[in-house]
Design a protein around this nucleic acid. Structure first.
Length: 196
DNA sequence: AGCGTGATCTTT
DNA sequence: AAGATCACGCTG
């Protein structure tokens, strides 16, 4: 299956949040080291009305990437330790993004194990801070897009509705009622204790 | 269940 | 300028 094209990302954020499940995220390091993970857990963050979205009050120095074209990477630093990986959604000048919360390791396991200091595959990428560490992603990648040979998504079949779980989002204090978290049911690589 | 760790944003 | 918050992960 080939690389996903820009048109794939032209969907409402919540729809894209589902469509990204099962797709293969690829980061190619210098020396042609290929790191690949299958996306198994995502969350939608979108514009006005969602107070948990960084951009709900408008554009700032940090969130400006959320206003760029769909398929752009929005990476930010939080809790003094962790980088969060998002894929921008919505047309240019409208804020939206999908937080990638967990992946299933597919290629580059040895590199990931060294990065993470563990060998247990269900612990390598089972959280948003874990997966950026495993994939060697930090704010240097903020603003890059998924249409080049460093970062891209490999296509894969979409999930059936009955294979997808839906809940409220994790770790937020505002807009807690929105059912904007999507994940692959019964997949052991979703973030800890949240497989169903 | 508690805490580290530092950028970002709000309030003074 | 100071204080609060934070789309988390690890130890205990």
């Amino acid at each position: 299956m080939g690389m996903l094209e820009p048109q794939f990302f032209e969907l409402p954020t919540l729809e894209l949040t589902e469509k990204l499940l099962g797709k293969i995220f690829v980061h190619v390091l210098p020396g042609n080291v290929q790191l690949k993970g299958r996306i198994v857990e995502t969350e939608a963050y979108s514009g006005t009305g969602d107070e948990a979205c960084h951009a709900w009050r408008g554009k700032t120095a940090r969130n400006r990437i959320m206003f760029q074209k769909p398929g752009t990477l929005y990476v930010y630093f939080t809790y003094g330790n962790h980088f969060m990986l998002n894929i921008v959604s919505e047309p240019e000048n409208i804020a939206g993004a999908v937080l990638i919360r967990a992946m299933e390791p597919v290629e580059g396991l040895q590199f990931m194990q060294e990065q993470r200091g563990t060998t247990l595959t269900t612990n390598l990428m089972s959280g948003p801070g874990k997966l950026t560490r495993a994939l060697a992603i930090d704010t240097k990648s903020n603003g890059k897009n998924l249409f080049n040979d460093e970062f891209f998504l490999e296509n894969a079949p979409s999930l059936e509705e009955n294979e997808i779980g839906t809940t409220t989002r994790v770790g937020i204090s505002k807009s807690r009622e929105l059912l904007w978290r999507k994940f692959i049911l019964n997949n052991p690589h979703v973030s800890k204790g949240r497989v169903t």
